[in-house]
Write a protein that binds this DNA or RNA. Structure first.
Length: 571
RNA sequence: CGGGGCGUAGCGCAGCCCGGUAGCGCGCCUGCUUUGGGAGCAGGAUGUCGGAGGUUCGAAUCCUCUCGCCCCGACCA
């Protein structure tokens, strides 16, 4: 490609809207342009990158035996009513109606549609297993779109859905997808981890998320450096303390703590270890019954876990709080409450505490030296309610957990029969019996991968694309193209040579100063470049430099092709 | 949705508090010079000051309403 014939539109300064590095760089490099909140145009340069990701994904999906199809982006409401998700999906779904006032949605996902395809087409176990996939634009009306293409409302996704005669077959395909995903993200040159995950709103049983590791990631991941254990913090189990609860040693004492309404404040004020304080959270279960959650002062509630242990869990409203405990915000506690009205669920760590500190349910007072069994009844239940923290023992017993952050770029689920049941995807099994198909689903956020890759690969000059996603693999940058016939000949010669060799090459023949050409190449993230100038040509050499290299190397003109080929092969 | 903030030239911003009819840098256009790291000089173009209403002799500036966007929390690829 000739830069003069292409469209390179770089910005020296990033628009103020962009916060995240990848977002700023994508805007500055002219990969994307914003149309509205969560809506982006992929400019020619950015589209090349997006297409490269697609290409790798498609290639590996095909290799893993999946079949590409393309479903409509717009889907009729009836299908979603059938699965029960028309209402359930809620505000995230963009609902639209046609001229006949018939209702549709812009597909946020395609389980319903694929099930419709499957139930019409699949009749016999002989047709199974099948794995259909598509690369489609999705729309989810996110509560808060942000970080550019990272959490856009409209985004490009690869979604695959497999159908099986039994669970064993699903397991095989699931494992194959796991392997395919690993191959995809490896080929894309990303540092990633497959992480045990919560199944979230989509439902089902087994599930893994694929995370590109980056400090800016929105997900927290717990892993054990001494074992293969790795899980999303949402799911990671906080194991019960190994030590038994100590016997009460201190007397129950009421202490005034004016203005100290958080555990940290109270601990600092009383000069005690934060780990001996207990925080009290009041909420409601799905049936409107009050539940009090007890967590150690240094721990955080894990909402996903709470939701799983207590069906319909939500935090209490101000009014409910006043009704149940009086207006004692900041001074709530489990001592002396009406246990017939309020169920107490303690986190495992709390259950192992003795002589702890809680709010006294009276304005400026806390209680110290509190003990279960003596000062208040044992909790009604002891559960794992908290987020793990660094240093917690690994659930597999192999060592201590550490935390890192990741960007979720892929997710695979064993859906089992949740959708196939609702939408009646049945087939005749080996015995001639009508059976509901087992189902798996497998997503990759194609557009998000681009942002994640940049998040992981950049420096102060710009993007450093891994070869597999780079818009161009090599840039030829001639110094003074318009002034030097020698330079022109050498540059054009190399350009033709690289093109003939099938290398994705950009020759920057724009009438710009050298500084501009070099800066643009670096911003855009082309992984390799040749700089061709009269100075070097006099000695018969041109300069070759990898985007991460500090210095260029001088290469004899005749060896240029072999040099890039070697570099590209090693990448 | 709740909490914070911002809308002034293509981009980044100043001006607003204390009303007097809009400015800076980058970019863009023309010419000359320059040419191995985002050039120099000279000349030039560009604004419904987000929108509507109000106060005022006069509004980017004050008031009211509205729209859009960004940031922090619950969602997800």
């Amino acid at each position: 490609m000739r830069a003069s014939q292409f469209f390179i539109s770089t910005l020296k300064e990033a628009p103020g809207e962009a916060e995240l590095v990848s977002h700023r760089l994508m805007l500055r490099a002219g990969l994307i342009r914003r149309l509205g909140s969560g809506l982006y145009t992929w400019m020619p340069l950015g589209l090349r990158v997006l297409r490269k990701v697609e290409g790798v994904v498609r290639d590996e999906m095909n290799r893993a035996g999946a079949l590409e199809l393309l479903m409509p982006a717009v889907q009729p409401a009836e299908l979603w009513q059938e699965s029960g998700r028309w209402e359930q999906f809620g505000e995230q779904m963009l609902k639209i109606s046609d001229r006949h006032k018939r209702e549709f949605c812009f597909g946020p996902t395609h389980e319903e549609v694929i099930c419709d395809v499957a139930r019409r087409e699949l009749r016999s176990y002989r047709q199974l297993p099948v794995n259909y996939y598509q690369i489609q634009t999705k729309f989810r009306d996110e509560i808060r779109p942000r970080f550019g293409v990272m959490r856009a409302r409209e985004f490009l996704m690869k979604d695959a859905y497999s159908f099986h005669e039994d669970f064993a077959s699903l397991q095989i395909t699931y494992d194959r997808m796991y392997a395919a995903y690993s191959a995809i993200f490896s080929r894309l040159g990303l540092v990633f981890r497959a992480v045990a995950a919560d199944t979230g709103a989509i439902g089902g049983s087994g599930s893994h998320e694929f995370h590109v590791l980056a400090d800016s990631g929105e997900d927290a991941i717990a892993f054990c450096p001494d074992s293969p254990y790795i899980a999303n913090v949402e799911l990671a189990e906080a194991v019960a303390p190994a030590t038994a609860r100590p016997a009460p040693a201190a007397a129950l004492t009421q202490v005034p703590t004016p203005g100290k309404t958080t555990c940290a404040d109270v601990a600092a004020f009383l000069q005690i270890d934060l780990r001996t304080t207990v925080k009290t959270l009041l909420g409601m279960d799905g049936e409107g019954r009050a539940v009090m959650l007890l967590l150690r002062g240094d721990h955080e509630l894990n909402d996903v876990k709470a939701g799983k242990r207590i069906a319909g869990w939500r935090m209490a409203t101000e009014a409910e709080l006043i009704d149940l405990l009086g207006a004692v915000k900041g001074y709530m506690g489990p001592v002396g409450i009406d246990r017939s009205r309020i169920r107490v669920v303690a986190d495992r760590a709390v259950a192992a505490l003795g002589d702890f500190v809680v709010g006294a349910n009276q304005a400026p007072l806390h209680l110290t030296g509190v003990n279960f069994g003596r000062d208040l009844p044992e909790p009604d239940a002891v559960e794992d309610l908290r987020n793990v923290v660094a240093g917690d023992p690994s659930p597999d017993g192999a060592g201590a957990l550490e935390l890192c952050r990741g960007i979720e770029v892929g997710h695979i689920f064993q859906l089992r029969t949740k959708y196939s049941e609702a939408l009646q995807v049945t087939f005749l099994d080996r015995t001639g019996k009508s059976t509901v198909a087992e189902m798996g689903c497998y997503g990759i956020g194609v557009s998000r991968v681009v942002a994640a890759a940049i998040e992981q690969n950049h420096d102060e000059r710009g993007i450093i694309f891994p070869r597999a996603l780079a818009p161009f693999e090599v840039a030829i940058i001639p110094m003074g193209l318009s002034r030097s016939e020698t330079v022109r000949e050498a540059a054009e010669g190399l350009y033709a040579q690289l093109q003939a060799a099938g290398i994705d090459v950009l020759i920057d023949d724009r009438d710009e100063r050298p500084g501009v050409l070099l800066a643009d190449q670096e911003l855009i993230g082309v992984p390799y470049r040749f700089v061709i100038g009269e100075r070097g040509l006099k000695e018969g050499v041109i300069e070759f430099q990898g985007r991460r290299d500090v210095e260029a190397v001088k290469v004899p003109v005749g060896e240029a092709l072999a040099t890039v080929q070697a570099a590209l092969a090693g990448n």
